[in-house]
Write a protein that binds this DNA or RNA. Structure first.
Lengths: 133, 133
DNA sequence: CTGCATCCTTCTTGATACTG
DNA sequence: CAGTATCAAGAAGGATGCAG
């Protein structure tokens, strides 16, 4: 544990952390998850996503959509009509991810209050610690 | 379903997406998750984290640690000794998150190959589409 | 050992305007 | 409708040096 350490622990941590990183990198953006959620109940069109997500720009919607498509998380179907119609649909892989995301959501909802309190307490103790008297 | 829509769907999507966003915002950084993983097997010191995570800068370690502490995900214990000793330990809330993260890891491991292939296929079709002949 | 302050670079995102 | 292109702003992260 001193310095003859062959480096086992770091490797283990690394081996565990990497897959998580991969997921996170893929889902990290501000919008990926919301797109997955919005598309979870069936095929959805570009404009519908744009209105559903509220706050997303056309640019980011396009970019995020492309990345998700690239990773095989959703399919893009172009319907050859005169007002163009493109539909996006989650793949089974993405549906699995969506299911998994639910445990995250659950965690967030169970602890959001606690976390908010913790944060408030922390801020109260660290910012205005000058006026203790 | 046409235009008399009162806006139910968007709201629902929003209501579901926000908690997820909260989790992600908290875990979003490159390092938060790795710190949680590294601390998952018990109290750990600053320098140990620094060596375990491999690639993290002192600056980011400190910042991320502070944020996690602020959110009540880990505790910081200062041992008053002459070489200072500070230990970080996950809280129960963080342990729950760690457990949840496992399902994400699981998803990543189950599909990492598929995703890599999908990505390769996408790239093959979109980058060099100029040399089709 | 633990950690903060400063500077600098890169990545991400938003705003805006134009096209098939 | 469904994008693409370009520009600019801001946040995240890295490098380095100093301090309790």
């Amino acid at each position: 544990m001193s310095q003859g350490n062959t480096g086992v622990t770091p490797q283990v941590v690394h081996a565990q952390a990497c897959p998580v990183r991969e997921v996170l990198d893929r889902v990290a953006g501000k919008w990926s998850v919301q797109i997955i959620v919005a598309a979870a109940h069936g095929p959805i069109r570009f404009t519908e996503l744009e209105r559903s997500i509220e706050g997303i720009s056309r640019r980011m919607l396009t970019l995020t959509l492309r990345n998700l498509e690239r990773d095989g998380l959703l399919t893009r179907t172009v319907h050859p009509m005169v007002p163009p119609k493109v539909e996006y649909e989650l793949t089974s892989v993405a549906y699995e991810l969506h299911a998994t995301l639910l445990s995250l959501t659950d965690w967030a909802e169970r602890h959001r209050v606690t976390i908010a309190e913790s944060r408030a307490a922390y801020d109260a103790q660290h910012s205005p610690e000058l006026l203790d008297a």
